[in-house]
């Protein structure tokens, strides 16, 4: 396959969705799982939450690489537009995953308090 062929090959709908929204989906998983697994982390250790952060960060990174690659290569203008904002979304959600995940390093998973 020549470079021109690669440039013109149009990815499928699922691939486009994953490239544009992969980071978003990864963040949603990290957010939901993180919230639900805090009591479990209190029982068995913080490594559980670090694992979730690592896995979802890698997914977001993969989506970022894919969207960046296609944003440079695709001919179709609307698709290129989609890929560029996919790049922006993936960078943003990767940062969100890392910021939220870093909190596990500093906050005790068992601590809680309420106003009377």
């Amino acid at each position: 396959m020549t470079t021109t062929d690669t440039a013109r090959a149009r990815p499928g709908a699922v691939a486009i969705t994953l490239a544009v929204f992969g980071g978003t989906i990864a963040w949603a998983f990290r957010f939901g799982l993180g919230y639900l697994l805090v009591p479990a982390a209190c029982e068995i250790g913080d490594w559980l939450l670090h694992l979730v952060t690592l896995g979802t960060a890698l997914l977001a990174l993969a989506a970022l690489v894919l969207s960046l690659r296609w944003a440079r290569r695709l001919d179709d203008a609307p698709l290129r537009f989609s890929m560029w904002f996919g790049v922006a979304l993936n960078v943003f959600f990767l940062a969100a995953i890392l910021l939220e995940g870093s909190g596990v390093l500093f906050v005790d998973a068992c601590a809680k308090a309420a106003l009377p």
């Binding site: 805090v38 209190c42 969100a96 939220e100 909190g103 005790d108 809680k112």
Partner: peptide, 19 residues
């Protein structure tokens, strides 16, 4: 935030608020 949810879970929502 003041309803007794674990602090670590609150931190996730706090981070999202910053983001």
């Amino acid at each position: 935030f003041t309803t007794g949810i674990p602090h670590l879970a609150l931190q996730f929502f706090s981070s999202a608020s910053f983001m």
